[in-house]
Nucleic acid binder design. Structure first.
Lengths: 165, 165
DNA sequence: CGATGATAGTTATAATATAACACTTCAACT
DNA sequence: AGTTGAAGTGTTATATTATAACTATCATCG
């Protein structure tokens, strides 16, 4: 019997959505996406992605390393970084540059840079899907005749739940 | 005679502006800004800022450390990071999160997060002063009722000079 | 002058990330 | 089924980035 077979303690988030299902969705999308691209969604890749998705908070590489070590042997930093690189290249996770951490992406079908709202109080990260943002930034870049390839947009502050009322 | 006393080789950039003057301007603005705030613009702080401004490219902390060691003794990582922190807090330099590097800020008067265009080919960084960007991002955040405190906006790609014609 | 707080020096270590090479596995082909 | 080549993973070592904790020095002000 695995440790995860029990009814598990609830987090704030789990009160609001079925996070188990949330993870499942992410994993099956990832599987599908890899299949489409002829990439293998191996046990290692699945485990790492599952750990990244364990919370809706940024996961640090070395924290993933520790957790991964609990479920398999022969895990080194390389293991984690290589796998994160793979997942990133397929758009399955994003790196949050300002935190040196990683979050799962729920729109793995699109080749997109993510845009993030990062709550400084509760650490929760929300990826915003506002197609206008890229258009705006491109227009700003166009003023300088600059050709954007990747966008790093990380907005830190307070989410609605953490704002003083 | 210092090495820098000679007519020096021209870089692409030096053909376009008098970079010596560019540094001088940055330094005197910094001096003024510190004076306004009752902060001391010490020799160390001046030297670090000068090194950051040496090029219009991102400066890595440990590169600054090496260069700083050439002009003073007792320089450790702490020295550099502490000084960069000081300069950052006063808006005199910005950290480029996606590169773990620092650039000088030419608008040290404003409390602003910078928005950057980063050329992947020539490494040149341009800080864009487009007041619309913050307004746009704030409106996007507002849709989620998120209160932005700091914006990390780093757009990587190709500057006009590095684009294939 | 002497107390005080800011600045800088010193030593050690933590945290993040990559390089280089060896071994294993899988799938495609014969 | 056996061969083989590329992809995946393991292993070891090291590079890079950043901070902690404590001490010494300096500038200012009473």
């Amino acid at each position: 019997m695995s440790k995860t077979s029990q009814p598990k303690r609830k987090t704030e988030r789990s009160l609001k959505h079925n996070h188990g299902a949330c993870i499942e969705t992410a994993l099956s999308r990832a599987e599908q996406r890899c299949a489409e691209e002829g990439e293998r969604f191996t046990g290692l890749r699945r485990q790492v992605l599952e750990l990244v998705w364990a919370e809706h908070k940024p996961a640090k590489a070395y924290d993933l390393l520790k957790k991964l070590s609990d479920i398999r042997s022969g895990v080194a930093p390389t293991t984690v970084y290589r796998t994160l690189d793979f997942l990133q290249e397929r758009g399955l996770v994003h790196k949050i540059e300002s935190l040196n951490a990683y979050v799962g992406c729920s729109q793995p079908n699109a080749e997109h840079s993510g845009h993030f709202l990062i709550c400084e109080a509760c650490s929760e990260i929300k990826e915003i899907e506002n197609s206008k943002i890229s258009a705006w930034l491109e227009s700003a870049a166009q003023d300088e005749e600059f050709k954007i390839k990747t966008e790093t947009v990380e907005l830190s502050g307070l989410c609605i739940r953490c704002q003083p009322s």
